[in-house]
Simulated assay, not measured.
Amino acid sequence: MSGTFAVRDHLLEELELSVRTSCSLIAQIQPTEWDFRPQDNMRSLMELVHHLAAIPATDLAILQEKTEQEVAEVENGAAGIASPDELIQRFQANLALFKQYILSLSEDELLTKSSKAYYLEHGMVQIKWLIEVTTHTFHHRSQLYNYLKQNGHELNFFMLYM
């Protein structure tokens, strides 16, 4: 296996960890908590979970150079879903689509194929998109963890690595 594919696989493992542990947090959400918002200028818990679950599919649409409207349709695909189980299933399905795309790329494509998001001036190579999706997911997993802690959930740091 090439070094490039080894790095790709490590990043995918980290992305899978982030999704798996995010799902364990989502599973703890009670129906009465969806409107929780730490501050007026922040997303509600429901908005945060919808965004988090959409990241692999939304970012895939972005890196595949979809239009702003097409990306918004993907981003808002879970609107109205309040079932933690359904959101978890959607998150896992979105991860599978993203992973399928990344695994389909050759080493050369990972390192040199550039795609440009509708909101950027310059494109990024696919391996950088993989890094972006991984860090984006971890960022919002951290927010979710903090929202749940603020809402009284008994959570511990170790659950983020299991």
Rank of each mutant, 00 (worst) to 15 (best):
A93N: 12
N146P: 00
S22R: 03
M1Y: 04
Q69S: 09
T112G: 02
K128M: 09
S83T: 05
H136E: 12
L63I: 10
A93L: 14
K99D: 09
N146M: 13
I102N: 01
R90Y: 14
M46V: 01
I81W: 01
P56G: 07
Q143C: 04
E68Q: 15
S18Y: 15
E68S: 14
E33A: 10
L97P: 00
L120P: 00
W129Y: 14
L63D: 03
E109N: 02
I102K: 02
M1D: 02
L103G: 01
F91D: 01
I131E: 13
L110C: 02
Q100P: 00
A53N: 06
T134P: 03
M42K: 15
L105R: 11
V71R: 05
R20P: 04
R37V: 07
M124N: 14
E65R: 06
M1P: 05
L52P: 04
Q143L: 06
G123M: 11
D9T: 04
Q150F: 06
V19N: 08
L120V: 03
C23M: 06
V19I: 15
A82R: 11
L111N: 13
N76G: 08
E109Y: 00
F5A: 05
L15C: 06
N94K: 03
Q143N: 07
Q150G: 03
A6T: 15
M42R: 15
S24C: 04
S2M: 02
I127S: 09
F98N: 02
Q143W: 10
L155R: 04
Y118P: 02
I88K: 01
K113V: 01
H51F: 02
P56C: 08
Y119A: 06
L95K: 13
L120K: 15
H136S: 07
A27H: 06
H122D: 12
E73R: 10
L105T: 05
F138V: 05
H50F: 00
R20V: 10
S104R: 08
L120D: 12
A6K: 15
L11A: 09
S115I: 02
S2V: 03
R37H: 06
E68T: 14
W34Y: 13
K66Q: 15
H10I: 07
M159L: 08
K113I: 00
N76C: 05
I88G: 00
K113R: 14
F36D: 06
C23D: 13
L52S: 04
N94L: 03
S22H: 05
Y161K: 02
H50K: 01
